[in-house]
Design a protein around this nucleic acid. Structure first.
Length: 154
DNA sequence: GCCAACGTTGGC
DNA sequence: GCCAACGTTGGC
């Protein structure tokens, strides 16, 4: 059982979208490191859902992996903005997992709060210049964030 | 909108 | 295989 963090810009896909969709294919990832982490995901793994490029930035909810990595069909679709001619159905390059909504945080655990919390030190997302959109999270950090997210807004 | 950090591309 | 040029991400 592993823990992860997925970044998304809420203008393209937010936690509210996931809540109403119930589940979604995490397609469109075009970064090898991120893809390699998705290949390691297993059904039942838990995921922190993070909003980037917005205000406030931070963890907004959680999800779970409901299907392990499979070929990303958006890479084959010439009409899709994530189309990649190098990826073919015979030899797919890009993969994605399916995730399902678990819950929405009672408040956003902001990036600032993550950086200032000594119990969360070392999280990849808080590192300067960290652009990785799929990243591993330790059990300790995952549980800390979930417990912070249960508290009502101050 | 700016720009630092990072990844990718392609000439050599 | 090096590295400059370019494109993207994402915090601020």
């Amino acid at each position: 059982m592993n823990y992860w963090l997925l970044k998304s810009e809420p203008s393209s896909y937010s936690i509210d979208n996931l809540q109403s969709d119930k589940k979604t294919e995490w397609s469109g990832v075009r970064n090898y490191q991120a893809r390699n982490f998705m290949k390691k995901m297993e059904v039942g793994d838990l995921v922190l859902f993070y909003h980037s490029n917005t205000a406030p930035i931070g963890v907004v909810g959680s999800a779970k992996v409901v299907s392990c990595a499979h070929p990303d069909s958006t890479a084959f679709d010439t009409n899709d903005s994530h189309y990649d001619p190098k990826s073919t159905k015979e030899k797919p390059i890009w993969e994605c997992v399916d995730i399902a909504f678990v819950e929405k945080c009672k408040r956003v655990i902001s990036l600032e709060e993550i950086k200032n919390d000594t119990k969360l030190s070392g999280m990849v997302v808080a590192q300067k210049g960290s652009r990785l959109s799929v990243q591993p999270v330790s059990k300790k950090h995952f549980e800390r964030i979930v417990s912070l997210s249960k508290k009502k807004p101050a």
